[in-house]
């Protein structure tokens, strides 16, 4: 035991000073004594941040340069939005799709929506007389794949399938959008939207028949007030 003569307290430690008044302690502590609490270990920075920062710098530089060229030599088209959009997509793909440890269904749903946005952007920034394919084909078909992917995750990962349920319900609701757009004559080609909606409807019925309790519970917990 060591002692602080000023505070009149006893302490077992290999440190030399009193934690209360910072005066030197007297007495000895057994050399085999292990400190009650651990020492400070500075959280070692991994190499990753340096790589990440370099990539980030390059991305920002590229965006600025492309935007500058586009504005200085403006030819009537904002073509720079395509490389800028792709760069942002790359970052979000890395951040949300690869590095994030979030729910897989969330990542799939998020990246699908983002990819649709990017493709729509590319579509409307390229050959003007030929656009509309992103809305007509890609949006419904991507929603179709997304639905299918999350549905399979739920079937395969039985143990924690409930974690993916809510995202699947959201994507199912999203799958209605192309069909609504067809109804309002925004989209001209019917079959991809119909396929996407058909799958969504099938999955929804499947869930209602086989997991009625989970659906009810999922809605209850997400909407309780």
């Amino acid at each position: 035991m060591k002692k602080c003569d000023k505070c009149n307290i006893e302490i077992e430690t290999k440190q030399l000073y009193c934690p209360l008044c910072h005066q030197v302690l007297t007495g000895e502590t057994d050399p085999s004594f292990i400190e009650v609490y651990p020492e400070y270990v500075s959280l070692t920075r991994k190499i990753l941040p340096t790589v990440k920062k370099t990539l980030l710098l390059l991305s920002i530089l590229a965006i600025v340069i492309v935007a500058l060229i586009n504005t200085l030599a403006f030819n009537g088209v904002y073509w720079s939005l395509i490389p800028i959009g792709s760069t942002l997509y790359f970052w979000l793909l890395l951040r949300v799709g690869v590095l994030s440890r979030r729910n897989m269904a969330f990542r799939i749903a998020f990246l699908t929506v983002l990819l649709i946005a990017l493709l729509v952007l590319i579509d409307y920034r390229t050959v003007p007389e030929n656009n509309g394919w992103s809305f007509d084909y890609l949006m419904p078909l991507l929603l179709f794949s997304c639905n299918l992917a999350i549905f399979f995750i739920i079937l395969v990962r039985r143990l924690n399938y409930r974690d993916y349920f809510f995202y699947l319900l959201i994507v199912i609701v999203f799958s209605l959008i192309p069909l609504i757009l067809v109804a309002f004559d925004v989209l001209t080609i019917l079959w991809p939207s119909l396929v996407a909606f058909g799958l969504a409807l099938f999955i929804l019925l499947f869930l209602i028949v086989f997991f009625p309790k989970t659906i009810k519970e999922e809605l209850q917990k997400r909407f309780h007030a």
């Binding site: 009149n8 307290i9 006893e10 302490i11 077992e12 430690t13 440190q15 934690p19 009650v36 609490y37």
Partner: peptide, 25 residues
């Protein structure tokens, strides 16, 4: 901390201290 525990030692009670020595962090 110092004044709080000194109150008891001044009254003759024995006090044993433990610290995580955050000063060393």
């Amino acid at each position: 901390e110092k004044e709080f525990f000194r109150h008891f030692t001044d009254l003759g009670l024995s006090v044993t201290i433990e610290s995580n020595y955050v000063e060393e962090f």
